[in-house]
């Protein structure tokens, strides 16, 4: 019963916090760009506005286009249920497997890419094509650091990995640990569609990746997708934050009293906002890369991940 409660609490937190995180990042970016920027609540306003709007469907689309927002959102939601964000003791934590999570993201992406092709416009096709290409080369770079962590923890269950880490299963802040973290962080940039890989703010057709796939969406469907994207960003931050720096998370070892939960929530929010700041700094200080330079970046991240793995194996002896 406790587990069910914890899971619902975590889910509600994510639903509520995800748009805020995006708002905060945008605000920080604006600050660095010496703008005032929109309010941190702007993402909420956008979503509620979308919900009020009429939905316009292209005449060329099929049912794939219509179900994609649901598939996307539900897949992300299920990840939310299984991932250790505030606590490792969710009702679905036992099946919160690393591969399951990555492949649920892939499922969401698969449908989104199909939807991009569905309307028949060249923008959607181009965006789908680039999204799949970038995500494909991001995949090994994403997996390798996670493998290192899973091997270190002795399980690929994310809650298990987090617990192992939180309770001294593996010495943190070693070179291996940091290299692995940086490697995963670079991939995180690609996965959340940020500069220098993609530009979340643009609708300029020749540079966009993610936005191109959403181009035909409107109304409620757009609302769902937008919220989904916010949540996905939060989840990736959660992966980065909790696997490498799990301190403060509520687990059976810490107990589940209200103060613990509260501090866990605050700790996580702080970690997420911290990561957001770093992201914002990177985004304002860099230009978007040419599409075909992205593989070099990800290759670098993969090699870093490999170094992390090697040093882990060597250190372990």
């Amino acid at each position: 019963m406790l587990a069910v409660g914890l899971t619902i609490f975590q889910m509600l937190f994510v639903l509520a916090f995800a748009p805020l995180l995006s708002g905060i990042i945008n605000k920080i970016k604006a600050y660095f760009q010496s703008r005032r920027g929109p309010s941190v609540l702007q993402p909420y306003r956008d979503i509620s506005k979308y919900l009020q709007k009429e939905t316009v469907l292209s005449e060329h689309t099929s049912w794939i286009f219509r179900i994609t927002p649901y598939v996307y959102f539900v897949a992300i939601l299920v990840v939310t249920l299984t991932l250790p964000i505030l606590t490792t003791f969710g009702v679905l934590s036992f099946t919160g497997d690393l591969f399951m999570v990555i492949y649920l993201f892939a499922l969401a992406r698969f449908f989104l890419a199909l939807a991009g092709l569905d309307a028949g416009s060249a923008f959607g096709g181009m965006a789908s094509s680039r999204e799949m290409a970038v995500s494909a080369i991001a995949e090994p770079a994403l997996m390798l650091p996670l493998f290192t962590m899973a091997i270190a923890a002795g399980t690929s269950n994310l809650s298990g990995m987090v617990e192992q880490m939180a309770h001294g299963g593996w010495p943190a802040l070693t070179p291996a640990h940091l290299m692995t973290f940086v490697a995963l962080f670079v991939v995180g940039i690609a996965e959340t569609g940020r500069i220098p890989v993609d530009n979340p703010d643009t609708h300029l057709e020749l540079t966009m990746i993610h936005e191109g796939m959403l181009l035909e969406y409107s109304g409620k469907q757009l609302a769902l997708l937008t919220l989904g994207v916010h949540i996905k960003q939060l989840l990736i931050f959660a992966l980065l934050a909790n696997i490498f720096f799990p301190w403060g998370i509520a687990s059976p070892a810490t107990g589940f009293q209200v103060p613990t939960l509260l501090s866990a929530t605050l700790a996580f929010a702080a970690k997420a906002i911290g990561l957001g700041v770093v992201m914002a700094v990177i985004e304002t200080s860099m230009a978007k890369m040419r599409l075909f330079k992205v593989p070099d970046l990800l290759m670098g991240s993969f090699l870093l991940g490999l170094l992390g793995l090697i040093s882990h194996v060597l250190l372990r002896g």
């Binding site: 099929s62 892939a106 092709l117 569905d118 290409a133 995500s135 494909a136 997996m143 390798l144």
Partner: peptide
């Protein structure tokens, strides 16, 4: 082991890309 795992991950992702192409180009749009 993990390096081969990375290769498998790349394979999986490319396969997904390939079937977005296969399904999308054949069945979707006009």
């Amino acid at each position: 082991g993990p390096v081969f795992g990375g290769a498998l991950a790349l394979t999986g992702a490319l396969a997904a890309a390939c079937f977005v192409k296969a399904f999308g180009i054949q069945f979707l749009a006009q």
